[in-house]
Design a binder for these strands. Structure first.
Length: 221
DNA sequence: CCACTAACCTATTCACCCG
DNA sequence: CGGGTGAATAGGTTAGTGG
């Protein structure tokens, strides 16, 4: 069935954006700037984006990941000589805080109109975890950048959990943690709201055929 | 096969406006 | 002041790249 589709495209998972492969020159530039300032403001990120020809959102993600990598390694390195932190006064004078605090720390707040909110809201009710294709479609529908849409969904999920109908009590999904993304069984009819999305987005994420052992540590009080 | 890491996620906090 | 919400942080998970 469905011989036409997925003949050999290998179905790139569709949910995630295609992984970017950074060229050595790009990596070098990013690492260099990271040393100077691990918390670049929006202006710096956008300048880098132009100079390296990488989307600003990818630059932001790279810095996020890089900070985690460095902190992790930092911690690992210090752990070995944990007996007596030699330079344990790691209160490094934050020179970069200056840049961070001065002015363009943050991107200017994006204003989202009621009509745009309405579109996003409808999509949210259908699928709280939109694929990259859906996000881009919503971007074209609303005229908002895709990265802002991704953030909008993150914020929305965080502040509107479960969202059961006027039911104060929780639903069955008391733990969104262990069960990654079991997207609710969407009604096909309801889905036909956003064109282009409904077609293949009906089967979005497959939860995780993997070992669900993943992470059940937090529970088990 | 497996290390590395981009992409994605949650949880929490900051920032800013507005009634 | 507190509620609403966009943007940032730390840090963990998923999955593609490439040795």
């Amino acid at each position: 069935m469905a011989p036409t589709s997925t003949s050999k495209i290998s179905l790139p998972c569709g949910s995630r954006r295609r992984r970017l492969v950074l060229k050595p020159t790009q990596q070098g530039a990013l690492h260099a700037l990271f040393q100077q300032n691990p918390y670049p403001g929006i202006a710096t990120r956008e300048r880098l984006a132009r100079e390296l020809d990488i989307p600003e959102s990818r630059i932001q993600v790279w810095f996020q990941n890089q900070r985690t990598r460095q902190l992790r390694q930092s911690r690992l390195g210090s752990a070995k000589s944990q007996g007596q932190g030699p330079t344990h006064g790691q209160e490094q004078p934050p020179s970069w805080t200056q840049e961070h605090f001065t002015k363009d720390g943050r991107r200017k707040r994006t204003s989202i109109s009621p009509s745009q909110t309405s579109i996003l809201l409808q999509a949210f009710e259908k699928n709280r975890f939109p694929s990259i294709a859906t996000r881009e479609h919503l971007a074209s529908l609303t005229g908002l950048p895709e990265s802002r849409i991704q953030v909008w969904f993150q914020n929305r999920r965080a502040r509107h959990p479960g969202q059961s109908r006027s039911g104060p009590v929780k639903d069955m999904e008391a733990h969104p943690k262990p069960s990654p993304y079991v997207t609710v069984p969407v009604e096909p009819g309801l889905l036909a709201r956003v064109p282009g999305v409904s077609s293949f987005d009906t089967h979005f994420f497959v939860p995780h055929p993997k070992g669900n052992t993943s992470s059940n540590m937090s529970a088990l009080a």
